[in-house]
Amino acid sequence: MQIFVKTLTGKTITLEVEPSDTIENVKAKIQDKEGIPPDQQRLIFNGKQLEDGRTLSDYNIQKDSTLHLVLR
């Protein structure tokens, strides 16, 4: 499925993911596309910070959902 990740600069990254993917996996995909190390990434969905060990389906993230990427 496709999800979107919006950065603070207003750029939107499109990712191909599975609901069973962990947040860690998603961060690795963002690193592949953008070169941002996962330990600098914080992903936010519906105002909640997403934890590495959880999956997209844990957070009820579905296709065409938009996550927000904050760098630390």
Rank of each mutant, 00 (worst) to 15 (best):
T12P: 04
L71A: 10
N46A: 12
L15M: 11
K11H: 14
K27F: 06
S57N: 04
V70R: 02
H68R: 02
F4I: 14
L15V: 15
G53R: 09
E24F: 13
K27L: 07
Y59F: 09
A28H: 13
Q41V: 04
L8D: 10
K63G: 04
P38R: 09
K63T: 04
G53I: 07
I36M: 14
I23Y: 02
I13M: 09
T7W: 04
V70Q: 03
T22Q: 07
Q62V: 12
R54I: 12
T66W: 03
D52E: 14
V70L: 04
Q62G: 13
N46P: 01
L50A: 03
E24P: 15
M1H: 14
N25S: 10
L69Q: 02
I30E: 00
T22H: 15
T7F: 09
S20D: 12
K29D: 06
K29H: 11
D32L: 11
G10E: 09
I61H: 00
D39G: 04
Q41K: 02
Q40T: 04
T12L: 06
D21K: 07
L69I: 06
D39T: 15
E16D: 11
V17T: 14
T66N: 06
L43G: 00
F45E: 03
Q62H: 12
Q49H: 15
I23E: 01
L71V: 07
F4A: 13
Q49N: 03
Q49V: 08
T9P: 14
D32W: 12
L67I: 03
V26S: 02
T7I: 03
Q31E: 13
L43R: 00
K6D: 13
L15E: 01
S20P: 04
P37M: 13
S57M: 15
T22R: 09
R72F: 02
I36W: 04
D64H: 10
L50T: 10
L67K: 01
F4T: 13
I61Q: 01
M1D: 11
T12M: 15
P38L: 04
T66L: 04
K33H: 13
S57V: 11
L67T: 01
L56V: 08
K33N: 13
H68D: 04
T14I: 13
T22M: 09
R54P: 02
E34D: 02
V70S: 04
M1F: 13
K11V: 10
L56W: 01
V26M: 09
I30G: 01
Q49A: 09
T14N: 10
L50G: 01
D32T: 14
R42Q: 07
T12F: 11
T66M: 05
V26K: 00
G47P: 01
K6V: 13
T7V: 12
I30D: 00
D64V: 03
V26T: 06
G53M: 10
Q31I: 07
G47Q: 13
T22N: 12
P37G: 14
T14H: 06
D52M: 08
V26E: 00
T66D: 04
V17N: 13
Q2S: 05
L67M: 08
Q41F: 06
S20H: 07
A28R: 07
P19F: 12
T22F: 04
L67W: 01
V26R: 00
K48L: 15
L56Q: 00
D32R: 05
S20M: 11
N25L: 11
F4S: 05
K6H: 10
G47L: 15
K11S: 12
D32Y: 04
A28S: 08
S20R: 12
I36P: 05
T12Y: 07
L69D: 01
K11Q: 08
Q41P: 02
I23S: 10
Q41E: 02
T14D: 10
